[in-house]
Nucleic acid binder design. Sequence first.
DNA 1: TCAAAAGTGTTCCTGTTACACCCATGA
DNA 2: TCATGGGTGTAACAGGAACACTTTTGA
Lengths: 223, 223
Amino acid sequence: MTSHPSSQNIKLAVDAVIFSIKDGDLQVLLIQMKKSPFTGDWAIPGGIIDDSETTIEAAERILKTQTGVSNVYLEQLMTFDDVNRDPAGRVVSVAHVALLPNTQAKLETTEKYQDVRWWPVKKLPKLAYDHKQILQVALDRLTAKIQYTNIAWSLLPLHFSLTELQAVYETILDKPLDKRNFRKRIAALDLIEPSGKKREGGAFRPAELYKFKEKTLKYVEIT
Amino acid sequence: MTSHPSSQNIKLAVDAVIFSIKDGDLQVLLIQMKKSPFTGDWAIPGGIIDDSETTIEAAERILKTQTGVSNVYLEQLMTFDDVNRDPAGRVVSVAHVALLPNTQAKLETTEKYQDVRWWPVKKLPKLAYDHKQILQVALDRLTAKIQYTNIAWSLLPLHFSLTELQAVYETILDKPLDKRNFRKRIAALDLIEPSGKKREGGAFRPAELYKFKEKTLKYVEIT
DNA sequence: TCAAAAGTGTTCCTGTTACACCCATGA
DNA sequence: TCATGGGTGTAACAGGAACACTTTTGA
């Protein structure tokens, strides 16, 4: 609520679980740690918040510097506050979820980390801190949210085919969907419109490309 | 994530939006402030986190000391971090939602506040800080969660009639429900069982009293 | 016997699921 | 002309919504 005479010794951090769909898998962007006691382990990008920035701003800044990605969808996930979650001291972390289309943005990290790369969520390496738990909560959130919002736009490029849209749902929900029923539902939701373009080049009928009418979070009903 | 050389000057607080159903209304427990610049305004109970407690523990402690209530359902809501949300300095607050049955617990606050009382969410006084926003988010969460979880148990006494259970849903959803359809859905969910007791005393047929099989959060499907 | 809340089934309707074939294109 | 993914409609089914009367009790 407000200031307090006694001095508090808690650091406030942000973490960002970054998802994208690559090679037909849901993948997460992780950085590899140098610092003990997690040397070699992988971690969700994160860092300490500056006094004058919000947590979302901090997450954007840290994403940019630690992984090279920017301009992504970001939402607050949950705050993780176990007293011993960081062996170096009391650190409370406001975790976020970031979603981005499958673009080939160049990944780059700082000298503080060994490496950055995408990992399929089904084949994760050993994770530092409580990041396994954070990732699980993020995954649950994404799985739930794809079903009752239009959030798929954040995982797709500007123009996309209905098959590509369906693949996003199938990948996240981890189950096949019926093509005709899927298209009926999407049509009923009235969230997308034809872009006039077509995806050509394959040895088959070109796909009509669509775009989202609005790229802002909307609550809808999808099964 | 971890410690950082530069010193951070952010205080970490918790707030707790406490809901209960009283007199057929959804009500929220607020405390009245003495301190400038919010003198006379009402606020969600809250305070600074101690170094060695989790946010949930802090919320429990603060609820007890600032309002006298304890033993409630508590869950993390969202973290509020606008840079200027507290005029006294940078304070990031991890907001929680607390739910309690309509018991007649004695309310008591500390000398730092003028008063504690329940307010119907439809007739709120002027709120301090960003507490109007926090309360709105809490209300949205409760309205959503009553529909897909068994969380109603946290708002009811151990034994309750089906009519009382229905009233909880009707109050939170703010709309009347069909008695027969409601009972069918509840029966299908298999979350409650007859307690063998009856609510007697009225000039009418006594109601069978039920109890929840489990008082832990379960995800279900209710319309 | 009256007033008040408790308790109980059926029908209709709407939305979800299951399912198979023709289309357009490039090789 | 063939292989490939793109695109389309209908019938069966299940779950949700609408709806009214009888029961039990205390006064």
